[in-house]
Design a protein around this nucleic acid. Structure first.
Lengths: 341, 341
DNA sequence: CTGAAAGCGCTTACAG
DNA sequence: CTGAAAGCGCTTACAG
């Protein structure tokens, strides 16, 4: 549909200028030398004809798509916008287009669907759990450039990853609850199993417990799924089953919202009775009530570094195997800080 | 980089199966008939060779990119995620890839930069103010399919648009402030000039004033820019200059956040002294304190309908010139509802 | 500095 | 049902 019979091509420009197609191409790509006069003439004709080179044809000829892809599960989430923003701007800065796809699911083959791959992009940014292992292996052995975001590749595959520092931040966060606010029974709400972030946050949580001489209590660890609703019902369940606790590390901010809801529905006051903390410092964190103590994840930078790593990988530059972006605690009201004693 | 010497092509499949390239192509595209035996043999060899057709080559041959583009200014905003989600899913459902680009700025030519156009996509979803007029005209005369989102095209150009119903909702919202909550001096905070949403919201606001027999007070209308910070300082400025008001229609939720901040900094109570309302019903609206009365915009549906309209346009189907998606008032605390009197 | 020609990996009438 | 061949709009050695 797009380009019809009357599409004007490099050949039209060649004809009208009297030069060969090769010369036009050289001019366009600023490669090889073209005399100033020729250049002028060509530019004029191009303007006159309103000529735009076909990106497709060029891609075929060069065998480079100049495009990177992003596969992601849920586009609607709040962390997606900043992530995307980081990716898009650095992709474009490097001359790459960005193709995005949410991971569909192939029911017949029982695995995530791939709509992005070597056939349409030069490399792929892969979000946790978004690509089936056999696709990963297949791409990998074709030496197709990939960079993982918020996850590490399967055992033995040498694929760079970019994510945030989870463990130390979680350790500090939970230690803060214990040491500053005298909390003794801290609940941890796990994220989805395939999210490594959750795993490391849990490690930080456990180590904080140990460091403080507190016991690990399996009943204090539940599934929050990085989801408002799951977190909310997890808390309700905990309360109903009589488990006592005086603080909740929600796993992420999304879950923290659900925790706050559940607690308010139960009539438990935050932070006086129960302290609540999250992770990410999403835009809404400071507007929650009480405002949420959490850990600031540099989401946009994860996107930017991820894209940059991918671009470097594509051009054969050396890249870091694992990039752990620094996080930072943000103290607000929900942990008990700033509270009149 | 992507496809190296060892790239396996349709020709490899042809050779290995003993059939012609044409037959392989027919099988892949399920066009024309291929005998069952042949089909099997081809599929097996394709699996064995791990063959994926080059999307690029196909695009060139068919002269269709099977890709739609989205040009948008600020990717980081909260409304982008749902919008994108709607676009991506309906694009893919229709067999289209999605290319996104934030509008850069060409300093030399003093106009927004285009990185998306007939040369790489079959059609474009254009966000308000994101594409220079001369590009729009140029694309238009090439009959390049475009659909506008949250804006209408320049005079005389027959380009479909998809947006939300602004005016009636704003009328009802402001009328609610006046009638239910006895507000007399309602501030309206304008969005960016190029955003038509803002214009229509202002119309609704003015009509509500008229309908209630209230005067238009120019001093009550200020620039909020759909931005937290701008809105915040606009309110501070209003207060400092001694303008009195008892309600604020912030223009959108983003600005409402800034209004709430400014009011709290000024020590004015919401909603007792000043009622505040927004527009969009972003995810954070219900978590603000007090929770925000606003208008629910079906953002994801705007994306979905925009993409669908574009796809239809590309395939030559008839499309609606202007699609106005219904909005709905959401009453929460910030307007004074649910307040013990 | 410029041109002729092959090639990128497909699709699509046209024949049979 | 299948094949030979031209063509999609570029780029890139290779010559000159």
């Amino acid at each position: 549909m797009t380009r019809r019979k009357d599409t004007i091509t490099i050949r039209d420009v060649a004809q009208k200028t009297g030069f060969s197609v090769a010369t036009i191409s050289r001019y366009i790509n600023k490669v090889g030398n073209v005399s100033p006069d020729t250049a002028n003439r060509i530019q004029n004709v191009m303007d006159e004809l309103n000529y735009f080179p076909s990106a497709i044809a060029r891609k075929l000829a060069t065998r480079r798509t100049e495009t990177i892809g992003l596969v992601i599960n849920e586009i609607a989430g709040d962390y997606v916008a900043p992530l995307l923003s980081g990716i898009e701007s650095t992709a474009r800065k490097n001359g790459y287009d960005l193709l995005i796809a949410s991971a569909g699911y192939d029911r017949r083959r029982k695995r995530p669907t791939v709509s992005l791959g070597p056939f349409n992009v030069d490399g792929l940014l892969v979000f946790a759990g978004t690509l089936a292992d056999d696709h990963i292996y297949s791409f990998y052995q074709q030496k197709f450039p990939m960079v993982f975001i918020h996850s590490t590749p399967p055992q033995g595959l040498n694929i760079p990853g970019v994510t945030v520092e989870n463990k130390a931040a979680s350790f500090n966060l939970v230690s803060h609850l214990i040491r500053k606010h005298d909390k003794q029974r801290v609940v941890y709400l796990r994220g989805p199993l395939e999210m490594e972030d959750s795993h490391w946050r849990e490690q930080g949580y456990l180590e904080a417990l140990h460091a403080a001489g507190l016991p690990e209590e399996p009943e204090l660890v539940a599934q929050g799924n990085f989801s408002r609703d799951t977190a909310r019902s997890a808390i309700h369940k905990l309360v109903q089953s009589g488990v006592t606790f005086d603080a909740v590390f929600a796993g992420d901010d999304e879950a923290a919202v659900g925790v706050l809801q559940a607690l308010s529905e139960t009539g438990l006051r935050v932070p006086e009775e129960i302290a609540v903390v999250g992770f990410d410092d999403q835009r809404l964190a400071e507007f929650l009530s009480p405002s949420l103590t959490t850990v600031k994840s540099p989401i946009e930078q994860v996107g930017a570094h991820g894209a940059q790593t991918l671009v470097d990988l594509i051009s054969g530059k050396p890249v870091k195997e694992l990039l752990l972006l620094p996080t930072k605690l943000v103290f607000r009201r929900s942990c008990g800080c700033g509270l009149a004693k």
